[in-house]
Design a protein around this nucleic acid. Structure first.
Length: 230
DNA sequence: TACCAAATAT
DNA sequence: AATATTTGGT
């Protein structure tokens, strides 16, 4: 109850405003204690950190700040502004960096299903789905992998119509099946029909620029049972 | 290049 | 078990 600390990119940017520039700081990859001193006083030095470590650490920091502010401690946030990241570690490593495994929370999965339903199963391909979901940090591969499983689930469910989902279907079963949306224009190869004025009324909700879907590196353990039914 | 299903890896 | 990655094909 009460006390909601709004924490977004602009807030973080404000904090960063007064800070020394990266050039003024000793790189984290470099030890603050000279080697000789360290050994003289038996100070154990931290192992050297790579740029990847540093980037991961700052992701993690921002991530935990956001989830704390969210009072939604169970789901972390993928959204680490790459605007800032890009300054530090060159643009190249957005690809190079090993992201934590994506966790398909019920919210994230719901968004996925909404988009797929909107496109119709025939037009729903990974790239388009990813774009329409508009979740920062979500990759085409993430979506492709999930889509593959989802298709199997749908096929399985259609085969055995009128039968309840298997107990192993937790996630998929938590979202109603796309009402046979095998519709929509079947043009593959050039999907420019999507994204213009009329389409996608159903994707509400996201006025803000950020999402707090579950991405999240560690602890997949306790994921709360978030079964929101309409 | 994107896509796909299947197999396989983590 | 859930997600990622590889493979071999369109």
């Amino acid at each position: 109850m009460g006390e909601e600390v709004k924490l977004d990119d602009s807030t973080v940017s404000d904090w960063e405003a007064g800070l020394p520039s990266a050039a003024d700081l000793t790189p984290l990859s470099q030890s603050l204690i000279p080697l000789e001193l360290a050994s003289a006083f038996r100070i154990s030095l931290d192992p050297p950190r790579t740029a990847v470590d540093v980037t991961r650490a700052s992701r993690s920091t921002l991530s935990s700040l956001r989830s704390a502010a969210n009072s939604k401690p169970l789901a972390d946030d993928p959204a680490v502004s790459d605007a800032d990241d890009a300054k530090n570690s060159s643009a190249a490593d957005a690809k190079t960096l090993k992201r934590p495994r994506l966790v398909w929370t019920p919210q994230l999965h719901k968004r996925f299903v909404d988009v797929v339903a909107h496109l119709g199963l025939r037009n729903a391909v990974p790239k388009t789905i990813m774009q329409l979901m508009n979740v920062e940090g979500l990759t085409r591969e993430n979506v492709a992998s999930h889509l593959q499983k989802y298709r199997l689930y749908v096929k399985r469910m259609q085969g055995l119509s009128s039968e309840g989902p298997s107990p192993s279907d937790h996630l998929f079963a938590s979202t109603p099946l796309p009402p046979q949306s095998l519709n929509e224009s079947s043009s593959r190869g050039n999907g420019s029909s999507v994204g213009m004025p009329m389409p996608i009324p159903m994707l509400h909700g996201y006025h803000g620029h950020y999402q707090q879907y579950g991405y999240n590196g560690y602890s997949q353990h306790h994921m709360a049972q978030n079964n929101s039914n309409c």
